[in-house]
Structure formats: C-alpha cells, structure tokens
Design a binder for these strands. Sequence first.
DNA 1: TTAGGGTTAG
Length: 607
Amino acid sequence: MKMYNRLLPFSYRIIRRSRVQQEICTISNLDFLESEMLKFVHTQAMDLPFQATNGSKIPDYNDVRRGHFLMKLIDDSVSRNGFESIARIFSKYRGSINSQQCNSMIRTYLDLNKHLNSLYIFALMHKFSILPDSSTFPAVLKATAQLCDTGVGKMIHGIVIQMGFICDVYTSTALVHLYCTCLSISDASQLFDEMPERNAVTWNALITGYTHNRKFVKAIDAFRGMLADGAQPSERTVVVVLSACSHLGAFNQGKWIHEFIYHNRLRLNVFVGTALIDMYAKCGAVYEVEKVFEEIREKNVYTWNVLISGYAMNGQGDAALQAFSRMLMENFKPDEVTFLGVLCACCHQGLVTEGRWQFMSMKQQFGLQPRIEHYGCMVDLLGRAGLLEEALELIQSMSIEPDPIIWRALLCACRVHGNTKLGEYIIKRLIELEPNNGENYVLLSNIYSRERRWAEVGKLRGMMNLRGIRKVPGCSSIEINNVVYEFVASNDRKPEFEAIYKQLDNLIKKLKENGYVTGTDMALYDIEKEEKEHSVMYHSEKLALAFGLLNSPLDCTLRIVKNLRICLDCHEFFKVLSLVYKRYIVVRDRNRFHHFYEGFCSCRDYW
DNA sequence: TTAGGGTTAG
C-alpha cells in the first residue's frame, strides 16, 4: 500500500528528521524554492534545443496524451517566443492542467534529456497550484541528478520532506541516487539507514553510489547487507558489485559473485558478462577471462573492449591484437576505448611499428579522433623503446595541450634511458603544472641519483621539505581467505608485523643464496648501501608477499595489488622467489600486471 | 505505474 499516494499539501508531515533532513528543512520554503528554481532554470535555459510543432487547443485525450500535446505546444511556443512562454501556456490553460499531465511531461522531457524542461514544469506546478503526487518526485529527482545541481537537489529534497513523500520508497530511492550522484555519499548512506521501507532497487542505488564514489569495500559490505536484509539481488546488483571487485582486484570475492550468479540463476546478459570479464581481467585471471568470453552469447563493443584491454594489461599483447582482428571480422565497430586497449597492448609489448600503424589507422580507417589518452599511449610506447625525440615531437605536434600525465610518461622514459637533459626540461614543465605533486620530484631525484649527483638530490630534497611535499606512500593489498589485508611501506619495523619481518628476512637470505642482489637504484637519496637495502627491504609489496607466503597453502596463487608502480628491486625479488619457492605470483601495479613464474615475469622486464 | 547497471593512457 502506498501511504503517501494521497496528496498531503503543505502538511509539514515529517516522520523523523535526520541531520540532513533538518538542514534541508531550514533552507526550504516552497515559494522561495519556486522562485529559486525558476531563476535556476532561466539562467541555464538559453542553449536548450527545441522542436517546433503546431497546436492550438488541448483536445480531450487521456492525461498522458494531453501531457504530450501540451509539451508540443510548449516546444512550439518556446521556439517562437522564448523559454518564458511556458508560463504563459500554463496561465492560459489554468484549471485544465492536472498533475498526471505534468508528470507525463516531466518524464517525457527526462527521456529526451531535456532535464531543465522537466524542472521548469515542476516549478510551474507550484506556481499554478498543481499539486505533485508520488509519481512526480522520482522523475524530478532523476532530472536533478542528471543536471547534478546540488542547490536544486537540496531544495527538492526539502519539498519532498515538507510534502510528506519521504516515506515513499520510489521517491526516497531516487533521493538516495541523487545524493550518491552529486551530493554526499555519507548523507546518502544516512538517508538510506533512516528509510522506513527499502527494496532491492534501494539497495542497488546505495551499492552503485559506493562504487561510483570509489568506496569499493563499502560497496561489497553493502551487498552482504542486502543479502542479510533478504532483498533479492538482480543482474544490476551483481554488475555493480563486480565492478567494485575489479577495482579492488578482489579475485575470491569476484569468483564468489560469479558462483552466486550461477546458483541464483541470474541471466548472463551482456552487462553481467562484460562485468565478469572485466573483473577477471583486473584480477589477472586470463584463463577465466577467456572462459567467460566464450560462454556468453551476447557481446557488444564494451565486451570486446574489456577483453582487449584485459589481454593488454596482462602482458598478452599478441592475444589483444588477435582479439581486435576477430572483433573486426565479426563486424563490431571499434571506438576510442578499443584503440586505447590496442595501443596499450602495443606499448606493453614494445610493438613500435604496429603501434604507429594502429594509431594512423584509428584516424584514417575508422575516422576516430585521438584523445590525449591515445597520445599518452604513443608517447609511452615510443619513450619505452628509447625513441625519446620522436615522443617529444609527437607531444609538440598535438593540437591538445599536453597534460602532466603525458609529460610524466616521457620523464619515466628519460629515467629508463638515462637522458638527464631532456628529463630536466620536462621536470621544469611538470613542476610548473603541478608544483605540489611529490611524484615529479621523486622522478627527478631518481634521475640525479642514477648519475650520483648528490648535491642536486640534496637541493631537491630541501625544496620538497620547504614546500611540505611528501611522496605518496606505497600501499599493497593481498586477499587471503576472502579478507583483504593492506600493507604500507615503512622504514621502521612495526611490532605487530614482527612475524612478517622475520619471514621477509629469511626470504631475503635464501634468495640472496640463489642469485638475488638487492637493487638500490630506486632508493631516493645518497645514503649508505646498507641503509638503501633497508629502505627497499620493507616495500609494501614485499610485506604483502611475506604475509601471503605465511598464510596460504603452497599451491595457491598469490595476488597482490599495489597503488604505485612496482620497483625494480621488488620486481627482481619476486622473480627469484617464484623460482626458488615454485610459486605463481600476480602483481597488479598502477599500470599493468606482472605474472611471476619460474623466475620470469610476463612483462619480460619491459615495463 | 514511478527508483538502480559494464570499458578508458601512466
């Protein structure tokens, strides 16, 4: 039963006011809201496209058709007399326009992506005393979420509370979505907790909100909450939860969701299939990627894109290019994202000629305009291959203004190929663009350290201290028995991790006997060798690995996710360890995957 | 007859 379907005009019927609701009510006054909304709509209405239609009077149709008729009348009038004429139409037909007709107009404008029109109709409803009902608000809130205007969003929330519609589950779900989209996720969560009624869609709105706000662990927790609440997850639910697992690299959680889909007979539609492939790709599980891809019937450009970029990030450039050829053979039209995957595959594989050709073909054969991301891939591809001049020329030839990311890609190449002169030129540009980003200083410091220019290193260190710039700490996570453990790099031994340090000390000793040499090139400053060894010894990925070895069966693949790029020393350490301990280790760093097995890495030391 | 979905450089 919908308790609030019956209209409660201006009743101030509030069930329970939370902090958010109280705050909202203090700023809400319906007349003020009306004038503010009209003002908002007028100020933004200048660019609206309108279609001219003919019409004179309202025929006696049902409400939806009358709503559509009115809309045509409005469009026609607006195209001839300007946006304000909508109010004149309302005035002319005062008394014969009802809320159902207005709802129909609001929803149709929503479908046409004319969100300001939806809001304008809503504002005029109050002006002409047409009372909204419970069907009005979901559409109005959706339009507000699309426009992402926080002021209007809070105003409409105020009206919802004041008119007593906060208990309508459709309206409050739309409100949760609005708060997740353009207000605050914590306020959305509070609203959700206070809702007297919720259903699967409300849970979906919250879980989606967490994922879109990058609160991936909370999204997975909310999914568990949904199951505990007895709500039935749908295909939409699992798509969003899988996306959270992808971001976290949470393989076991993702696999569990896959089993859940199977046992609960959810459809393996194109959304679910694509989300599954993406999850497995971002967990470094290429075999599962292929299995799901062959299993699903329905595919679209998204599905192909996650497959191609999945192969690329896992170091299987040839497979990515083969998948791209197959995509074309099966008559799918590639888009800009497809070419990002293709160029990324060439980049990680060092396929310079192929990359140049694909970049040309993207423009000439497929008519796609390269974006800065595509140039970024090309600069990285050329830079890694040592073609620094060509990479610089490409940046200079761009019609788009180069961004810090593209300069940093070239700077990394300068470090790899020891080109200090170009590195210094770039760093000056970078520090102008991003004076507070510690990563830039660290990159330059690494270039100086490599050439043993300790005076410059010291000067740079002083500048960082003076400006209060800190290096982003390395952070790695590993999933053991469905629990994600996180480790942060540290120069000090923390007492609670003593068992892990001991394990790490033993590992280092054993690996040194088997050919591992501590790489200290990446250590930042001019410090003694022993101290440098110490500073790379407790990198977060090594701590995660030591913890994984201590807490997993011998045949278990270890999967580690790192927030920065894996360092040279850790890369060597993992290679030797995979040989000595016969373990398969997968590391997802900020850029790509490294699959370590029998002393080798899938990146073939090219990263 | 209303609310909620997947991909993207380094």
